[in-house]
Design a protein around this nucleic acid. Structure first.
Length: 820
DNA sequence: ATAGGGTTAG
């Protein structure tokens, strides 16, 4: 063995030293395991060149074996050996072993400290890197050197201000070192301190491509793509080529600011300069095409790659996941496993989204379990947030809440995700409660995402006064001109009945994409202002904004609420022919509604028959609703049969059918429907109405008697009913499905939630002021009729927003023209 | 023996 080692010493500069080194190590360790270690090793201490052994260790197991060997031979006492070991662990990413080695060292030199800091920076532990640096400067005799600063500056760039460090670097005279200057420049660019970066950059003795890249990547990471692109232009003017690093940092920035054309040109540059086989460049290209939704291009880049790493796989998987192709994304995930790659934290983030998109609850649980077993929840919030989001999208609120509680260090996005979970699943007041908890119990500053998640909850509840408070907070955080927040505000004012305020906010929001247009068109639609909605659409086209499927949904629904059959047809046609948008179920639902309301029931049925997919409850529901308005028993029966097949438990359809029979005096039909409903033990979505008085939302359920002003409310209702009856109001009991006596039915009608809310509004507000009611379901037909009378006798304008649209009751009429 | 600029995310 000794001879072998001696031979090896001679060959150490040969290319085969790696192979031989490994062989030496295995011989040594097997000798070690023969329980004669002390003799063997003591003898060889002078001979074995450990440097060689170090360079031969490439996997965790051999490093561990070497470590053991060194401990036994007492070698770990020397700074040189332990620092080498520390570096090996750092390269393997084994931070805890690296730290153990570091902390056990009695003496440390510059190499040791730099290696430990480098281990932290490599693994993204920037705070720990800074702490280590502070320990170095405060407690040790060692001075930071010019290997230390690039590392520390990188850590700084990811944390906070680096100005103090700059002074230090300056004082120690390191600033004019090209390496360190580049690090400083990079850090300044990340903090957008362009002047300081520029000063250093201009005064550098010479500039290699890394210095240029320091500027460009710093700007890109700051989202300043325009500046970065112009610097890249200057770089080319100085005769420098864009290298793989430049391209990998500039591509994501291009996408971020919507410069997809430049991205394409860069791809051409890549091909022309033969950079297409660079791993980082290819990965960046995949991500660019993924964000643009050009999946074929992303896939082509992926398949052309010679070497693919975990980032490549993660990128292509997330490309399909983000573009709603969960099945194919899963296929790719399997492919990745076949190639022997272990998923990491980010793979699982994509996987969580994939399982929720495909609606596999069981798989979602598995993903959760996998993450928990690996302990990844402790490593990064992003994983915990992904789990909360996954359960939220599946509608499993309890699990989402539990997953949220499990996150050790929650950030804004954790809170935003939970708020969205509640508001998207129809629990608006819970969403608001979570937002209030965040404000009250944490130091977390709400961001754009917070407003986007909580504002829809206020619009959903119709809580105008509280929503306006949020508007105040939004202005304080300077986010009112953000497209998404601005659109949520437009939506909130529109849905709370303040169409004029919605309009004036709309005029202040940037209108470059369809999002704000869709919101304002939809708002006019639910208020029954079809002609304004159409005008806005023309203006949108005139401004050069491309309509999307949501735009047409808003338009079709606006047309149907205003009875614009011809215009609706025109829009439907335009969507398919001019914009090549395939109509979805909801578009068909709108068309059926449009034709049905206008009395063209046969045509509506024709539309259903022409659908390329299976009609769902919303489509048949639209037809049934239309049959009720126009008293078509035959088609109504047909539609309700389809509905009972799809959703036999929703009471609303039974009510509509019963109402159709009642309107034409077919009482046996009414009683049939009633017994059918009773036999099936129908599930009733509890109806509730709310009214906001003095900044407080009051919620009423049908027959609710728990409100503090309950007695006064029922007294007021009694008086009102008597008054409106004298004006000609006749209760229509076909809206009551319970099998009870006639006078009991009338009592049920008068205690409907919308009427309780109206009565409460009347006694709690000043005479002649408007009353705004919100109802979670569609307003009951009898209540609609009664409210018209109430608006007349009380001389009040009553605005009811139900789940479908706005009803402005004024002087005995309603804006919806009785087609509710 | 240690070092600057790069790709994926809720």
């Amino acid at each position: 063995m000794l001879r072998l080692l001696l031979k090896y010493k001679v060959w150490r500069h040969d290319k085969i030293h790696l192979l031989l080194g490994t062989r030496c190590l295995s011989i040594l360790t097997s000798a070690n395991s023969l329980q004669r270690p002390s003799y063997e090793i003591k003898d060889q201490n002078k001979v074995i060149d450990f440097t060689v052994l170090f360079s031969s260790c490439s996997d965790a197991a051999s490093v561990k074996r070497l470590h053991a060997l060194l401990v036994v031979s007492g070698k770990t006492q020397t700074i040189f050996v332990s620092t080498r070991l520390l570096n090996l662990y750092a390269h393997l990413g084994d931070l805890s072993s690296a730290y153990d080695t570091f902390s056990l060292m009695p003496f440390k030199d510059e190499y040791t400290w730099n290696s430990m800091i480098s281990a932290y920076v490599r693994t993204g532990n920037f705070t720990k890197a800074m702490n280590c640096f502070h320990e170095l400067t405060l407690t040790s005799q060692v001075q930071p050197d010019w290997y230390t600063f690039p590392l520390v500056l990188k850590a700084c760039g990811n944390l906070i201000d680096g100005k103090k460090l700059h002074c230090w670097v300056f004082k120690l005279g390191f600033m004019w070192d090209v390496f360190i200057a580049a690090s400083l420049i990079h850090m300044y660019c990340r903090f957008n301190a362009v002047a300081a970066a520029h000063y250093l950059f201009e005064n550098m003795p010479f500039r290699d491509s890394a210095s240029w890249n320091a500027v460009i990547s710093g700007l890109c990471q700051n989202g300043n793509a325009d500046e970065a692109l112009s610097i890249a232009g200057e770089m080319r003017l100085e005769g420098m080529n864009l290298d793989p690093v430049t391209i990998a940092s500039i591509l994501p920035a291009c996408v971020l600011v919507g410069k997809s054309l430049i991205g394409m040109l860069i791809h051409l540059y890549v091909i022309k300069h033969g950079l297409e086989f660079d791993l980082f460049v290819s990965n960046a290209l995949i991500n660019m095409y993924a964000k643009l939704g050009w999946l074929e291009h992303a896939q082509r880049v992926f398949y052309q790659m010679v070497v693919r790493d975990l980032v490549s796989w993660n990128s292509i998987i997330s490309a399909f996941e983000q573009n709603n192709e969960p099945a194919f994304a899963l296929l790719l995930y399997n492919g990745m496993q076949l190639h022997g790659l272990q998923p990491d934290l980010l793979t699982l983030v994509s996987l969580a989204s994939i399982t929720s998109q495909s609606g596999h609850c069981q798989n979602s649980r598995s993903v959760h379990g996998f993450i928990t077993r690996r302990g990844w929840l402790m490593e990064d919030v992003i994983v915990g947030n992904a789990i909360v989001d996954m359960y939220a999208k599946l509608g499993i609120i309890d699990y989402a809440r539990k997953a949220f509680e499990e996150i050790p260090f929650k950030d804004v996005i954790s809170w935003n995700t939970l708020i969205t979970c509640y508001s998207q699943n129809g629990f608006a007041s819970e969403a608001i409660e979570i937002y209030c908890m965040m404000e009250a119990y944490t130091d977390i500053t709400p961001n754009q995402g917070t407003w986007v998640s909580v504002l829809p909850a206020y619009s959903h509840l119709g809580a105008l006064q509280q929503g306006m408070k949020i508007h105040g907070h939004v202005i304080k955080t300077h986010l009112h001109s953000d497209v998404f927040v601005g659109t949520c505000l437009v939506d909130m004012y529109g849905k709370c009945g303040r169409l004029d305020d919605a309009m004036s906010l709309f005029s202040e929001v940037p209108r470059g994409n369809s999002v704000p247009w869709n919101a304002i068109i939809a708002c006019h639609g639910i208020h029954g202002h079809g002609e304004v909605a159409l005008e806005l659409f023309d203006k949108m086209l005139h401004d050069g904004v491309n309509p999307d499927n949501v735009t047409f949904l808003s338009l079709l629904s606006a047309c149907s609420h205003s009875g614009f059959v011809g215009q609706g047809y025109r829009c439907f046609h335009m969507m398919r022919e001019q914009y090549a948008i395939k109509p979805s179920l909801r578009h068909y639902g709108c068309m059926v509604d449009l034709l049905g309301r206008a009395g063209q029931l046969e045509k509506a049925y024709e539309v259903i028959k022409s659908m390329p997919m299976q009609p769902d409850v919303s489509v048949w529901g639209a037809l049934l609703g239309a049959c009720r308005i126009h008293g078509n028993i035959e088609l109504g029966k047909f539609a309700s049969d389809r509905l009972f097949e799809l959703d036999s438990e929703n009471v609303g359809y039974y009510v509509l059918l019963s109402n159709i029979y009642a309107n034409v005096g077919k009482w046996e039909g009414v009683s049939d429907v009633r017994s059918l409903a009773r036999d099936r033990g129908l599930k009733k979505t509890p109806g509730w109405s709310s009214i906001e008085v003095n900044n407080k939302v009051n919620v009423f359920y049908t027959g609710n008697k728990s409100h503090p002003k309950c007695e006064e409310i029922y007294k007021e209702l009694g008086i009102l009913t008597a008054k409106i009856k004298s004006l000609g109001y006749i209760p229509d009991s076909s809206f009551v499905l319970q099998d009870v006596e006639e006078d009991e039915k009338e009592h049920i009608l008068t205690s409907h939630s919308e009427r309780l809310a109206i009565a409460f509004g009347l006694i709690s507000t000043v005479p002649r002021s408007n009353i705004r009611i919100f109802k979670n379901l569609r307003i009951c037909g009898d209540c609609h009729n009664a409210t018209k009378f109430i608006s007349k006798v009380t001389e009040r304008e009553i605005i009811v927003r139900d789940s479908n649209r706005f009803h402005h009751f004024k002087d005995g009429t309603c804006s919806c023209g009785d087609y509710w």
